[in-house]
Design a protein around this nucleic acid. Structure first.
Length: 684
DNA sequence: ACTCGCCTAAACAGAA
DNA sequence: TTTCTGTTTAGGCGAG
């Protein structure tokens, strides 16, 4: 029946590597980008250049920029609203032109801010999704700030108009003047409301968390940043405003409006919004382009070597110009990266990249510490293998010294090299070098051997795999087995297996076609997976004996393997993993589902419980104990449909408490689905 | 160099 | 007819 297909599959494009390659490719791209000299550099420079000059270069619109676009739209609406109001109320004097000029500048600066960052594609290359999110947040915050400034300027404009009207209105009848003032005040109110609404909207998007001061009273906080703070209160006081200062303020503001607008464009004011990293902030009080310039020129003062010079080329983002020696490089630096808008813009970009990376690093470090703290919470833990791996400064452990030089799991954000914070390895704590060295094709044979105690591994890194888009270092077979064994009745439909995969691993929430095919392929291919016809359809069970057969226990016989495994496992997961591995490899019988009840096996395997899933399931439905509840035969008697494996003779029928003694009764489905409803919390 | 285990892709068939 | 499920084959890769 399957005769014909064999021949024509010639072109077997190396698609097999594609999936893998994409993973590692992402990682590489991220590393290169963050190091500053990579491919992201040129484009970053280009983006900067655009923003510095034209500031209208938002050609592509990615989801990340959609928000900016929305905000710009909101801004436009606000601007139009204000323009309409102003033009309707004020005489079309020079104020109007001034206003339109300043109003135009705000979107410009906004566009600047969005394009000041890298293009979305580049950002994705450089930053991981969480980083992008953080970046987005910061940009939102920056935008809000500019928005506030913009509103404030508009207010000032209105006040100016009010004042000019007042002065001009001295000749006019009093009532007309009063009406106009009233109208202006209404305008102000409306504008405030508009502003508040916009801010609320931004906050509601969940991407912006304003500091209380910013959120509560934007108008009140603004004057400090703006131009003539002293005059404003008096203006606000309204009618009896003194004419003289107002007159001054008019001129002053006329200047300052443009001045601050350009300031806003050239100086993104990160310091105000991103407090966490003060050492990267620019001097806030000097809103000139000089500050970044000073920054860039400061690099030149390092003697001997230069941080921007390495491997014979200029490390300036996006440059990569080859320079034979340092002198030539210095010359190049002074000519190509002199004090101009482009350089300063690039500098700002780099600054923000570093900031975001550091923020991300801080977050990840915190998470890592929490994870490791959690892992070390378990009391006893004889630590035979040195490695005082532990994290939390507060705890009694010392600092982490996990061979930090190791690589990081695929898809994880690599810590920035420039980060001031100590570099902490971002990898699932339970994973050791064994799984790390396999950068691309995540789980290979060795991984499967070393990390095969998948349940304990999973139990400890459950959250990690659930959230991080990292390929789990397990084979499909072991994962499928784990999924099946986690259920009370040790059987799952294909769809339920799918669900388990997606529930447990963020990685499997994409590329569904690929891995689902692989799952099906594995189910069919491996004899250890037995298909059982049920009333409700077919379910898959695990033939433990076949599974063990499939993987000969090398562990016991090979001290080197054991040693590798031990050294490879981080301390927290070590005990469980080791023992589970021993259980799986050395005591295959013990390892079978039913035998691992805490009571009987605890003496030998106090911790592991391995794949039986015992550790994870809070409640094996019945009686919680039911020691030999699912003894090996349990599956075997179900195995009638397909090739009855030799185990069929063991049809002892342990009378599994739970439900279906035999497949024919088909009781389990409901239970199984009930179990299915309890999501992945089992492993947490 | 070879084998083995694993992964991916794909074709195909049958059932729903 | 489409989709899902299950089977099978083929080729590539890494490790032993």
């Amino acid at each position: 029946m399957m005769v014909e297909s064999a021949s024509e599959t010639i072109r077997s494009a190396p698609s097999g590597q594609n999936g893998v390659g994409s993973l590692s490719g992402q990682a590489d791209g991220g590393g290169g980008g963050s190091s500053g000299g990579g491919a992201a550099g040129p484009a970053a420079g280009g983006a900067c250049r655009d923003s510095a000059v034209g500031a209208d270069s938002n050609g592509e619109m990615s989801p990340a920029e959609l928000l900016h676009f929305q905000q710009q739209q909101a801004l436009q609406v606000a601007r139009q609203f204000l323009l309409q109001q102003a033009s309707g109320l004020s005489s079309p004097g020079n104020n109007d032109s001034k206003q339109s000029a300043s109003a135009v500048q705000v979107p410009v600066s906004v566009a600047m801010m969005s394009s000041q960052m890298l293009t979305p594609q580049q950002m994705q290359q450089i930053l991981s999704p969480p980083q992008l999110q953080a970046l987005l947040q910061q940009q939102q915050a920056l935008m809000i700030q500019q928005l506030q400034e913009y509103y404030k300027k508009q207010q000032e404009q209105l006040h100016l108009q009010l004042l000019t009207q007042q002065q001009a209105g001295k000749q006019q009848p009093k009532e007309a003047l009063g009406n106009k003032q009233l109208a202006f005040q209404q305008q102000l109110l409306q504008m405030q409301q508009l502003q508040q609404q916009h801010l609320l909207n931004l906050q509601r998007q969940g991407l912006v968390s304003l500091q209380p001061s910013q959120a509560s009273g934007p108008l009140q906080t603004l004057p400090q940043a703006a131009v003539c703070p002293t005059d404003l209160p008096q203006l606000w006081k309204g009618e009896g405003a003194p004419g003289q200062p107002a007159e001054d303020s008019v001129k002053q503001e006329g200047l300052d409006l443009t001045g601050t607008a350009t300031t806003a464009t050239s100086f993104a004011a990160p310091p105000k919004v991103s407090p966490p990293l003060s050492h990267h902030t620019l001097p806030n009080g000097q809103p000139t382009v000089l500050t970044p310039r000073r920054d860039s020129s400061s690099h030149e003062e390092t003697p001997g070597s230069h941080p921007l010079y390495g491997h014979g080329e200029c490390k300036w983002p996006g440059c990569e110009t080859l320079c034979e020696d340092l002198g030539q490089f210095i010359k190049h630096l002074n000519t190509e990266h002199a004090l101009d808008d482009r350089s300063t813009a690039q500098c700002r970009v780099q600054m923000q990249v570093v900031q975001q990376l550091e923020i991300q690093l801080a977050k990840e470090s915190e998470r890592l510490q929490a994870m490791m703290t959690h892992l070390h919470m378990r009391p006893s833990e004889p630590k035979p293998f040195s490695q005082p791996l532990n994290p939390v400064p507060g705890s009694s452990f010392s600092k982490v010294t996990v061979s930090a030089a190791d690589s990081f799991p695929d898809g994880l954000a690599h810590p920035p090299t420039s980060a001031a914070a100590p570099v902490t390895p971002l990898r699932p704590p339970g994973l050791g070098a064994a799984s790390l060295h396999s950068g691309g094709p995540a789980r290979r044979r060795s991984n499967d051997k070393f990390c095969s105690p998948i349940s304990s591994e999973l139990a400890q890194n459950h959250e990690f795999y659930k959230n991080a888009d990292v390929r789990p270092p397990f084979t499909y077979a072991s994962l499928i087995r784990q999924a099946i064994l986690e259920t009370p009745d040790r059987q799952l439909t294909l769809n339920e297996i799918y669900n388990w995969f997606t529930r447990m691993f963020a990685y499997f929430r994409r590329n569904t076609a690929t891995w689902k095919n692989a799952v099906r392929h594995n189910l069919s291919l491996h004899k250890c997976f037995v298909r059982v016809e049920n009333v409700k359809g077919a379910v898959w069970t695990v033939d433990e004996r076949e599974y063990q057969k499939r993987r000969p226990p090398k562990m016991t016989g090979s001290p080197t393997l054991v040693k590798n495994m031990i050294s490879g496992l981080s301390y927290g997961a070590l005990n469980a993993s080791y023992q589970a591995a021993l259980a799986e490899s050395s005591f295959p019988l013990l390892n079978s589902p039913g035998m691992l009840n805490p009571g009987s096996a605890s003496s030998l395997l106090p911790l592991g419980h391995d794949d039986a899933g015992a550790p994870v399931e809070p409640l094996p439905s019945n009686g919680s104990s039911s020691p030999p509840r699912l003894s090996p035969p349990q599956y075997s008697h179900q195995v009638q449909v397909k090739e009855e494996p030799a185990e069929a003779e063991e049809d002892r029928r342990p009378g599994p408490p739970l439900g279906p003694p035999n497949p024919s009764t088909a009781g389990p489905p409901e239970d199984r689905e009930l179990e299915e409803e309890l999501p992945g919390e089992e492993l947490s």
